[in-house]
Design a protein around this nucleic acid. Sequence first.
DNA 1: TAATGTAGAGTTTTT
DNA 2: CTCTACATTA
Length: 757
Amino acid sequence: MEFLESLNDAQRKAVEHINGPAMIIAGAGSGKTRVLTFKIAYLIYKGIDPFNILSLTFTNKAAKEMKERIASSVGESYAKNLWMGTFHSVFAKILRIEHQKIGFPSNFTIYDTDDSKSLIKTLLKDMNLDPKVYKPGLVYNRISSAKNNLISANEYSKNSAIISEDTRSSKPLIYELYKKYQNKLLRAGAMDFDDLLFKTNELLRDDPQVLHKYQNKFKYIMVDEFQDTNFSQFTILKRLAALFENITVVGDDAQSIYAFRGANIQNILNFNKTYPDAEVFRLEQNYRSTQNIVNAANSVISKNKEQLKKTVWTQNDVGEKIRVFRNNSDQEEGMAIANEIFRLNNETHLDFESYAILYRTNAQSRALEEALRKSDIPYRIYGGLSFYQRKEIKDLLGYFRVTLNPNDEEAIKRIINFPVRGIGKTTIDKMVLAATENDTGLWQVLTDPIGYNCNLNGPTVAKIRSFADLIKSFRIIIEKESAYDSGQKIAASSGLLKEFYADKSAEGLSRYENIQELLAGLKEFSEDQKEQGLPNGLADFMSEVALLSDQDNTADDQKEKVTLMTIHAAKGLEFPYVFVAGLEENLFPSQLSINSREDLEEERRLFYVALTRAKKRVHVSYALTRFKWGNLIYCEPSRFIEDISEEFLDYPYLENQTQRFHEYTKKQQPSISIPSNAPKPYSPPRNLKKLSSSSPSNFEGSPSELIITGAEVEHQRFGKGKVLQVEGQSPNKKATVFFQGIGQKQLLLKFAKLKVL
DNA sequence: TAATGTAGAGTTTTT
DNA sequence: CTCTACATTA
């Protein structure tokens, strides 16, 4: 066990602790992950069966990396028996095993946030509620936080405090929505993210046999990022650990930055109350950053009231002070950072991947990107729309979902008329109505439209039948074929591949590429699973995919590129040089946080996280003016800059510059007008199209019989074009026309006026 | 049914 | 400003 030699005293003690509850408070950069992996390896060396170890992490990526590290230390054959993953993925797995006990199919669907919100929208329509008052996002958050606090729909409706809170915000019927929402999920054989934890809690609470089974299986439990767990998660832990109490949690209260989505910092602050015998280990030596960075970060976090006692220190060099950049505008801020990176790079000859620019909101990336582009500095930006949220990906996954679970109504609605097969809104509404009246699901109606008496005409019934048959044929395919083969066939037979292939616009091209990428992922999955002798069907793929995120796709193309990301996304990462941009009041700290101490403290922890990402030097910057939604606004430097003790700051111009700024703004007030000498951003001319399309309309179309393949035609708006194809029967005759300079368009002849030339 | 127009909203994010 | 969701129009 010579690996223990490489640990410091505190780390080694934490690793060697085996029995009983333990809390490891791990300061930033203190080698937390190393301790956790070593501890698991140590348990295995001590003869504990990996089969009895459960290790929970914040992301799948973290789990995967840790598993690999353990495998390289104790051997693959041991490591593969470890249960390792996020709360959601581990307990989804268990719920699939125990599905009968909770009344769900084993291949239940996991609804993502979009599915949930769309379901809430349809419920609002049913109940005739105004979606402007009952904003789906708000309703969802309300239900989500109830679930995270283990309040069922029934308990919710009986909780007077909650009801009166909802009434005060003029949304008294949320309890009703919650109930209906759960009913719909049950009927759809679906769970949302919170349900995965909620149902696990119910299962462990109500079924002593199941509880006993998993208590005995998971004799040793490790939890990473414990500061970001919520009540529901902690309750699961308490239940599972109740028998042996071999639970080790690792975390840093100073880095708790996810309260806004239900994480409860009290879990870590009060761990000792739940487990009075818990041994507490403090990892306080920082191996990452210079003394100046560590001390500056400490001075910031000390302004928070709620925290566990610890003193992070380092033996590293003193290093340089935190540099403060003051700028007149967000553009200038970007240029200042770009210039500094350029200068540093000449000086140090480091790769561009040594630099990160961190910010509070994604919207800030634009000005920064522009500056980097102008300076020819390569960068990679994280965030934005994730791969799995893209339309085309959700479309294909929608087909997979319906195939696996035809009760998945959100997925049915997504794909039933995409690609278009003539089943429109009216038809769907009729069938939904029939389903509601007969107290059944949409799929049942789809498979027997006549039996349910939906008042549909013959051709429509035929279209519905052929859609149902299509799905049924997919069900046969996935019975015996691999995920890849099934996926390939479904993508082709559904018409999706053709649909995206036909679209030759830039967007269409990238959509097609994304579909291909997903199929490539399926292929990789199928082959990997087969190699390992594991099941490789579509169902197996789908049971994992709902819980994956972009960060799990370890794309290694960030080499030689500057990293741009939000501070949240930077958690757990490190860079030699870090730029924290936009340190302005109402931006960082965010405007929404400055009214409560708790929220403000969370923002301050976020700043702490930002500072402690850096190894060598930190630059913080702010702008005096910034464009927000097209308007120039004036900004004040963030209070967080003053939270850094002056001795660690390099703030050359602080006094005279800010003073000048204040004089300047005073002069301008009270009329908030843009001074003529203020920098104006470049904005390209817009709405050119509008000007060219406003001609009076006395345009006559030719009769549809004259519109034939090959004909040269003219359209009022699109101009001259050539008919490539005509399909369908009058009055639903459709022509595909190629217009010069515009591209291919599909037009319904009963609407579009086309003149034959 | 599909393209186009318009109103409204707009932290942080993983599962 | 920019994106999205819904209504409108052909």
